[in-house]
Amino acid sequence: EIVIDRPTDIQQNLCADKAYDGKPALKTIVAHGYIPHVKTRGEERQEKKRNPAWKARRWVVEVSHSWFNRFRKILVRYEKLSDTYMALLHMAAAIIAYRKVGVIYG
């Protein structure tokens, strides 16, 4: 469900990874009014052959999930109360941000 109405005067683009390369997924993307931008399977491999210095990029969400998965207390949820769990998520996010700032500015 979309909470905020989309602007009608601009095109809506959707960037997706190789998992959404199939016809059913593309059909759903187009049916919802998006212009799909999906890398096909093998496209990264071909780019690597053409340019050996090229590195594949991970999606921001995947990287963020990876960072959060390093916190075992979050990965395996032992907390019964949602408030406690949310507090741990916020603390993990703060630690991740602190580490990233330290890498950039430290």
Rank of each mutant, 00 (worst) to 15 (best):
S64G: 13
K100T: 14
R6D: 08
Y34P: 03
R77D: 09
I95M: 04
R70D: 12
N13Q: 15
K27P: 01
K39V: 01
T40L: 13
A92P: 00
W54S: 08
H32A: 07
N13A: 15
E47W: 12
R77P: 00
Y34A: 00
A25N: 05
G102R: 01
A92E: 10
L14E: 00
R72W: 03
A16I: 03
L75P: 00
V63F: 12
Y34S: 09
Q12D: 03
R70M: 05
T8N: 09
E79R: 04
G102A: 01
F71H: 04
L88I: 03
G42S: 03
K18D: 02
I104W: 05
I35W: 10
K27N: 03
W67A: 04
W67R: 04
L89N: 01
P7M: 10
Y105C: 05
E43S: 04
P7L: 12
V61Y: 08
V30L: 09
Y105H: 07
P7K: 12
G22L: 07
E44N: 02
L14D: 06
K73P: 03
R72C: 01
N51P: 05
F71T: 00
L75D: 07
V38K: 09
L81I: 14
Q11L: 00
P24S: 07
V60H: 11
C15E: 13
P7Q: 10
E47A: 12
S82G: 14
F68D: 09
L26G: 00
T84P: 10
E62Y: 07
K48Y: 12
V76L: 11
V101H: 10
V30W: 07
A97W: 15
N51C: 09
A56H: 14
Y85T: 07
K48F: 13
V3L: 14
V60T: 13
A56R: 15
A56F: 14
